[in-house]
């Protein structure tokens, strides 16, 4: 009997949960806020779905309801992607080690 491709996706899903579990436990608590903003940014990879929706019309059929939903979803995901990664970057820039010699 052939294995349903769903089973493969389920396997990827379950194994990824475990990877997430171990990777996230190794995140230092002081970086928990950047962790939240970066997970936020990467979950916007849902934009791949929004892209399919944006281009889901048949040749010559004009802009459909699904397309409009797609464009809105692209906008929302883009806010998240740019906002999420940039704000994470901004936060991470601020984490500095103790300077060897204080100039003050």
């Amino acid at each position: 009997m052939e294995i349903d491709p769903f089973i493969f996706r389920l396997s990827i899903f379950i194994l990824s949960i475990f990877i997430g579990y171990f990777v996230v436990w190794s995140v230092t608590p002081s970086l928990h806020t950047p962790l939240m903003s970066v997970t936020n940014a990467i979950s916007s990879v849902i934009i791949v779905g929004a892209i399919i929706a944006s281009f889901s019309s048949l040749e010559g059929s004009g802009i459909s309801f699904s397309n409009i939903l797609g464009f809105v979803a692209v906008t929302l995901a883009a806010i998240n992607i740019f906002g999420g990664f940039l704000v994470t970057q901004r936060m991470l820039q601020m984490y500095k080690k103790k300077e060897k010699k204080k100039n003050k």
């Binding site: 899903f13 990824s16 997430g20 990777v23 962790l35 979950s43 791949v48 779905g49 399919i52």
Partner: peptide, 18 residues
């Protein structure tokens, strides 16, 4: 899962467990 997209499944699992 709906879109059968690996990137979304992996990311969803990572963010979900995080």
């Amino acid at each position: 899962f709906t879109l059968e997209n690996t990137a979304l499944i992996i990311t969803g699992a990572l963010v979900g467990s995080s």
